[in-house]
Measured scan of single mutants.
Amino acid sequence: ESETFDVELTKNVQGLGITIAGYIGDKKLEPSGIFVKSITKSSAVEHDGRIQIGDQIIAVDGTNLQGFTNQQAVEVLRHTGQTVLLTLMRRG
């Protein structure tokens, strides 16, 4: 069981404050995608409180990250504006 949710964030001096990890899993058993690996102290993400380590980032400002490499996803996140809309999925 999984839930998908949107989080809109405004960057602070730390930026968004997440590091991400790309993961290619076994299609049947484990998900592939871009996941939140860590959250920086005092960052926008930590202050917001809704995003957790292990959440999958589905889209950034409407750009679907399906099939993106870790590096491609980093580039998408790097080129966002001051306000960012993240679409995430959390597995229950």
Rank of each mutant, 00 (worst) to 15 (best):
R91M: 08
E8W: 07
I57C: 03
R78I: 07
Q52R: 13
V45Q: 11
G15M: 05
K27T: 11
L86R: 00
L88C: 12
I57K: 03
F5C: 00
L9N: 02
V36K: 00
D61F: 01
Q56F: 06
D48N: 09
G92V: 14
T63L: 12
G92T: 14
I20V: 15
V76H: 09
T69C: 05
I39K: 05
T19D: 12
G22T: 14
A44T: 10
R90V: 02
S2E: 15
G67E: 11
V13Q: 15
D48A: 10
Q14Y: 11
V74G: 07
R91K: 11
G62L: 03
G17N: 04
E8A: 10
V45K: 09
Q14S: 11
M89G: 09
I20N: 01
Q71N: 10
Q72T: 06
A44L: 08
G22P: 14
A59G: 11
V74W: 11
V7S: 00
R91F: 07
D6S: 14
Q52G: 06
I57H: 01
V60K: 00
S32F: 07
G22F: 11
G81L: 00
K28N: 13
T87C: 02
L88V: 14
E1F: 14
R90M: 04
H79D: 15
T69I: 02
R78L: 05
G49L: 03
I53E: 10
Y23D: 15
M89W: 08
Y23H: 13
N70I: 15
G49P: 05
V36N: 08
Y23I: 11
G22V: 09
Q56N: 03
S2Y: 14
A59R: 08
A73C: 10
V60F: 03
E3M: 13
V60Q: 06
H79P: 00
G25F: 06
V60N: 00
T10G: 04
G25N: 12
G92Y: 11
I53Y: 01
I24G: 15
S43M: 07
L9H: 00
R78A: 10
I20H: 02
D61T: 02
K28S: 12
K11G: 10
S38R: 12
I39T: 03
T80C: 09
F68V: 10
A59I: 02
L29E: 13
M89L: 13
F5G: 02
L77Q: 02
I20Q: 01
V36W: 00
F5N: 03
T63K: 13
V45Y: 06
Q72A: 11
